[in-house]
Amino acid sequence: MHEHRDYEGAKIGMWLFLFTEVLLFGGLFLLYAVFLHRYPAEFHAAGKELSRTFGTVNTVVLITSSLFMALAISALQRGRTVLSQRLVLLTVALAGVFLVNKFFEWNAKIGHGIYPDSPGLLALPPGEMVFFNLYYLMTGLHGIHVVIGGAVLLYGWHLMRVGRVTPEHFVFLENGGLYWHLVDLVWIYLFPLFYLVV
């Protein structure tokens, strides 16, 4: 059986998969929208509890990682494989930084007794309870996607080293990059909705 290399088809497939991710998060964004509409004051109050510094730093980290990813693709298209490999590793490193930050942030919140089903959370007004529950769900689901995205890119890096992703056939890396940008995209919305709603 001869091998199909349908570059355009692979990209269409990847975009379709990204849509499923958008709509998966979409269900949570829908809940967020409804509850923001219902509890504007409580969301305002609870949003102030989150560390804006952490949020902003992580935004910068993710956007910069997206830049590295885009540069990695451009480098590979120009045939500069080694540079591309390094840029992919930098992207993954920034994913790690993001997760470490997230860990400290969650850790601090949990240390204050604010996590789903905790007595501390249940003592809050209903609107703030909803805010924090959504916060954990949405950033948690996003965090899982950061982990998966990082793993996919690491695998792409491996494929480059063994010569299966090349300047001629790099659709795996490009699709991995698309996934990574989507992770960034979701965070671009999560950041203002949780850290900046005032």
Binding site: L30, L31, V34, F35, R38, Y39, P116, D117, L122, P125, P126, G127, E128, M129, V130, N133, L134, Y136, L137
Partner: peptide, 15 residues
């Protein structure tokens, strides 16, 4: 124990 559909935790079952 996330209560997004539980009215006693500010949630809404209709959602």
């Amino acid at each position: 124990g996330v209560g997004l559909f539980d009215p006693s935790r500010g949630g809404d079952p209709i959602l």
